[in-house]
């Protein structure tokens, strides 16, 4: 009964066997493909911790059926950059030390990465609006805004 679903993940062709095509993409990425970037926070599309890009758009993978990812281009935090070759946002988050526990940070960076595609020189309040549906409990918000701003400047 199980079904194979293939997609391009972080630039590489990958596939997963699933019993239930309705299973959220998050579980395929974390459990079948062993990724740590996308995180489980609510499973309700309320917090943003699970954010990945599907065809360049920020998507909440905790409610996105894996079947819908078939044939799509997926990007996760791991594909954005590495400690050795960080993306401008990852670099800016390190420079601003914009992490406390870091559990929300995947969502912050992936949401911001999609946002910066549409607005290259955002103001602080535009950044805050863009991240308004991403929750952080540690209270790292001020640093996160500074990091996104810094990244946008470095990417200009």
């Amino acid at each position: 009964m199980s079904k194979t679903i293939s997609f391009v993940l972080n630039g590489r062709q990958r596939s997963v066997q699933v019993d239930d095509p309705e299973m959220p993409l998050l579980y395929a990425l974390r459990n079948d493909l062993g990724l740590h970037g996308p995180r489980f926070g609510c499973g309700l599309a309320q917090c943003g911790a699970c954010t990945v890009h599907v065809e360049g758009k920020a998507v909440r993978s905790c409610t996105f059926p894996v079947a819908q990812a078939a044939g799509a281009k997926l990007l996760t935090l791991e594909g954005l950059g590495t400690p050795e070759r960080p993306h401008a946002l990852q670099k800016a988050f390190i420079e601003e030390q914009a992490v406390q526990c870091g559990y929300c940070i995947n969502g912050m960076i992936m949401q911001a990465a999609a946002f910066l595609q549409t607005n290259r020189r955002p103001t602080d309040s535009q950044i805050k609006e863009a991240l308004a549906d991403n929750l952080c409990r540690c209270g790292t918000h001020a640093r996160i805004v500074r990091a996104v701003k810094r990244a946008s400047e470095s990417m200009a």
């Binding site: 974390r30 970037g37 996308p38 996760t76 960080p86 870091g102 995947n106």
Partner: peptide, 21 residues
């Protein structure tokens, strides 16, 4: 001093409890 865990946390290399297998 910059925090030791941040580079791994912003790149998805960090192993949280929720990632432990």
């Amino acid at each position: 001093v910059p925090r030791l865990d941040i580079p791994e946390k912003v790149t998805g290399r960090f192993t949280y409890m929720q990632d432990l297998k």
